[in-house]
Design a protein around this nucleic acid. Structure first.
Length: 282
DNA sequence: AAGGTTACCTGCCCGC
DNA sequence: TGCGGGCAGGTAACCT
């Protein structure tokens, strides 16, 4: 589910509740995620204090004061919910009352409860030593961060200009550029006026520049809207995002293009749906 | 090495 | 009403 804007929104949402608070207890109900939750997670993290929360690609990084990082990925259907309300907390202390697919519960010294729920189990919760983060298998081959200060059109052009595959699959490739998933790929390509089937190495420098700016603008606007809620995704406080109301092409097959009033097309690329306008995108 | 395909898992929606 | 197929915000193990 969650692409960069949704993960960023969740990070901001949990930070307000858990930053500078200590982990009081950790309960694992089902460790069987994409990477199994480590058995010694509680042993290593209970009584440590949350120093800061960062996003890296689509990963949530919770930095603790013992040089370890709690790493969370939401996969397609993961949710990280903050239970701040007193009544709800009491409810959540009863295991029989947990929701289906709640896999992990973290309780903090300030009373906050954080629950990880993931229907499809494509996500993960693990622990990494801070000094090993960059060399860790999950992080060592990640590409450019589109919202970093030094990411620009020239760098983007260099990254894509030799790739002999569709531009859509290139911008969704986390070893090239991180954070762009199936929704924001289609939305960014529409804004840039580039057809998703174009080979990346066929883009001119001008087209690459336009696409780079479209990606950044789309992601930033989605963050401003609290992300996109289709089905599973919710902010940490349980609220829906509302960027889905601003989609220009995603999920709009057969509907009129907002720019030219032509009909939005849907095709399958690399097993994923792509949405675009035949006449606006070249 | 780069690019394409398949699998992982659960739930929902659609057509027969 | 029931069942099978297809599809869903991601990633990575395979294959060529």
């Amino acid at each position: 589910m969650p692409e960069l804007p949704e993960v960023e929104t969740v990070c901001r949402g949990i930070a307000a509740h858990i930053k500078n608070s200590s982990i009081k207890s950790i309960k694992v109900f089902n460790p069987k995620l994409r990477i199994p939750i480590p058995k010694d997670l509680a042993k290593n993290l209970v009584n440590t204090k949350v120093k800061q929360i960062k996003r890296k690609a689509k990963y949530i990084l919770i930095y603790l004061d013992n040089q370890r990082i709690l790493v969370i990925h939401l996969g397609m259907s993961g949710r990280l919910q903050i239970i701040g309300d007193k009544q709800e907390r009491i409810f959540y202390h009863q295991e029989s009352k947990h929701k289906k697919h709640d896999h992990l519960l973290v309780e903090f010294s300030n009373g906050t409860i954080m629950v990880y729920n993931d229907t499809r189990k494509f996500g993960l919760v693990t622990m990494v030593e801070a000094h090993k983060l960059k060399s860790h298998k999950l992080f060592k081959s990640l590409g450019a961060e589109p919202l970093s200060k030094d990411f620009n059109d020239e760098e983007f052009y260099q990254l894509i200009k030799t790739r002999n595959k569709s531009i859509k699959s290139v911008i969704m490739d986390a070893s090239i550029i991180v954070g762009v998933g199936n929704i924001y790929a289609s939305e960014s390509l529409f804004r840039a006026g580039i057809k998703p089937t174009r080979l990346a190495n066929s883009l001119t420098k001008q087209e690459a520049s336009k696409l780079q700016k479209a990606i950044v603008a789309t992601l930033e606007q989605a963050i401003d809207s609290g992300g996109s809620t289709l089905k599973d995704y919710a902010q940490a406080n349980g609220a829906s995002g509302y960027f889905q109301h601003k989609f220009l092409v995603y999920g709009k097959a057969g509907k009129p293009c907002k720019r030219c009033s032509g009909v939005i097309s849907k095709i399958i690329q690399n097993g994923r749906s792509s949405f675009y306008c035949e006449s606006c995108q070249k």
